[in-house]
Write a protein that binds this DNA or RNA. Structure first.
Lengths: 233, 233
DNA sequence: TGACAAAATAAGTAGCTACATAATAGCGTT
DNA sequence: AACGCTATTATGTAGCTACTTATTTTGTCA
């Protein structure tokens, strides 16, 4: 073989990572410059650069031009979340997917929604309330606002055939996405729709998307009791 | 200037991204090969490669050797979460941080904890229950299990001076981290510790870390009512 | 001493080449 | 048709060079 002892950038990354784990570099310490590491590990600087970029992306290390690379003094837990389309989520868990359109209202956005989008001017919107089902039982209740200026085509979509969730994901790619997670107590209406008890603790996912500065949609997805969101890997 | 019209990999990325947004490539469609895009956009293949990698990381596109690049047919919402040390989180919100050690017990891990770590053999552990405070008021209640085999030094740490959260983050870097989010109803004990009402909806963050295959710690962090977790950006 | 300009520094990026690797497609044999 | 080998293909990676850019350090002059 031609290069058994050749280092890949992942090897370099792991070696530096291990050095930090082993305490050779502590929080706040400055690491040698890329070029020196390259010499020491007998590889190209570009290889070290890729390794360092990855460590920087994962939050272990901070890099600044001229300032060099240093171990983050107050490390963060950084994780990547994947949130699939609800239909796919249900099907992947082995359930049969279904959905019901509850209400569909064209109206101006209330102030709270405008604030979520960081807008100051009024905006015509479509409000869509829908229930996602797994094996015929409530799974997620969504309360969604869609900008009619950014996504006027939504007017002509039959939302009882295809959920707004799915139509938007397939037809309105976004640029920017904010997520927000928290817990609420089920109010009587919500409890009835989700077929659970008033006061039950429900996990909520709020998602807001934009294309450039233009608002697309904001949705409050209220999950049924027992729902868990996991990081993948 | 020397290169005003030179394309950076971010330009390439954005151009491809825009082409997808504009519908020139729909879900499932195959994109031209990197080399062709490079010719068309008059840049090096390595530049296209970097752009494509980024689009792939962000979940918009899937790449396979020989198979080429194609737009994900069922796109996911992918987001990065940063979870800081609790002390830092409190301080960043302008609060005064404090913490109380509630209980500290050395014992073998129960089956549920072993399962979380994907272990089958019994494991000696330290259980630490602690309360994080913001401006003297309850902020997060944590119920933590620490492996005494992987982190034996924890025995000698004064956990009323430094929280286990902080000591672990600074002294026990990890390789693998699983996160889990959900909602619970406050039971009477939890409610009392968090100074809230029994039955209140509480947002819970569970985090489990390993170094290679060895378990480090698993923690169930129960937040006070109103707590929200946001994606940054 | 302080302000500002110039030099030095270390990471970031672009381009090129060469080769590695995974996955597919094609072909021939039985 | 089923198999296994080989060739092909498109992405992935490593190395090199050259240049750019952000930031700090240093040096000079008022």
């Amino acid at each position: 073989m031609t290069h058994a002892n050749r280092l890949s950038w992942k090897d370099v990354r792991d070696e530096i990572h291990d050095a930090i784990l082993a305490g050779r570099y502590g929080p706040g310490d400055r690491l040698p410059r890329d070029a020196d590491i390259a010499v020491e590990m007998n590889c190209a600087r570009s290889t070290v650069q890729r390794a360092m970029q990855d460590l920087s992306d994962s939050g272990l290390v901070e890099r600044r031009r001229k300032g060099g690379t240093r171990v983050r003094s107050e490390p963060v837990t950084r994780a990547t979340l994947d949130i699939p389309i609800t239909r796919r989520e249900v099907e992947q868990k082995g359930g049969r997917y279904g959905h019901q359109l509850i209400r569909r209202t064209a109206t101006d956005a209330p102030r709270s929604v405008l604030a979520t989008f960081e807008l100051t001017e009024p905006e015509p919107m479509l409000r869509v309330e829908a229930l996602h089902l797994s094996d015929g039982r409530p799974y997620i209740l969504e309360d969604r606002w869609i900008s009619l200026r950014t996504a006027p085509e939504i007017r002509d979509v039959d939302l009882s055939a295809q959920s707004a969730n799915e139509w938007l994901v397939l037809n309105k790619p976004y640029n920017r996405c904010d997520l927000r997670f928290y817990a609420i107590s089920a109010d009587p209406q919500t409890a009835e729709l989700l077929q659970t008890d008033t006061g039950a603790a429900l996990f909520v996912i709020e998602r807001t998307t934009w294309i450039d500065a233009a608002p697309i949609t904001t949705v409050k997805a209220i999950t049924t009791p027992g729902y868990q969101l996991l990081t993948q890997s």
